[in-house]
């Protein structure tokens, strides 16, 4: 089985603003991004990216309006590689303090505001430390990434936490659960370190696709 040379990545357009950088980062990793809200295009894709800035409530309402909420859950359950970025990572979890709403709930945990004592939103570069051997490298390795957020994931399954960051408090900044990855920072704005992670996820998509083709 040959890895899929140019996997198709659906970038879910839920009105999250600047999608240009994430699509360019996907292209740089050798995949083909498709910005879409079309259920058929999402089902046909080899991998799915849920990007996002803005409010959780507005984003979930839009996913509901587009009839994508259940579809995205189904694709995750089917093992399709999935990457949530920033708000997109937060939406992988359950209860969202912002707007008192519920996310996709595909990972265990909830989302709440950063604890006071620091400037909110966090805007700027911060360090991610790997908790185990994973996409970030060996356990204990560190990298710097660009964050823009006011909310963080809490009560996640420790086994899903691949990287943590300290901003007043320590919070999960990278989560992985099988083919589902989430990044609280913006890899598409984190220069070379960020592109490396996008590459790693696209490689996962390639190999998953290869597995699918082999099984068929």
């Amino acid at each position: 089985m040959t890895p899929n040379a140019e996997p198709v990545i659906a970038v879910v357009d839920h009105g999250a603003g600047n999608l240009r950088s994430i699509t360019r980062a996907i292209q740089a990793a050798g995949a083909r991004p498709v910005i879409t809200t079309d259920p058929a295009a999402i089902v046909a894709a080899d991998g799915i990216i849920l990007p996002g800035v803005g409010a959780a409530c507005a984003a979930m309402n839009r996913l509901d309006d587009l009839a994508l909420t259940d579809l995205l859950r189904e694709r995750v359950a089917a093992g399709v590689p999935f990457l949530g970025v920033c708000l997109g990572m937060q939406l992988l979890f359950g209860h969202q303090e912002e707007g008192d709403t519920n996310g996709l709930g595909v990972l265990r945990g909830r989302v709440r505001m950063l604890r006071p004592g620091v400037k909110i939103p966090q805007i700027g570069w911060n360090t991610v430390r790997a908790t185990g051997d994973g996409p970030l490298g060996a356990a204990g390795s560190e990298g710097d990434f660009y964050f823009v957020h006011s909310f963080v994931v809490d009560d996640a399954d420790p086994a899903d936490i691949a990287g943590v960051t300290r901003y007043g408090e320590v919070f999960p900044s990278v989560v992985t659960h099988g083919a589902v990855w989430g990044m609280q920072f913006h890899p598409e704005k984190s220069s070379d370190a960020g592109l490396k992670l996008v590459n790693a996820w696209v490689d996962l998509v390639r190999n998953t696709e290869a597995g699918k083709a082999g099984a068929a």
Partner: peptide, 27 residues
Amino acid sequence: MSPTGMDPAAAVRTAGDALGDAIYRRV
């Protein structure tokens, strides 16, 4: 168990403890 053999919750705590308090200033 994480690949390092540490209990996941302990691995998260260890990683968090290793991070400094400093907040980067930007240029």
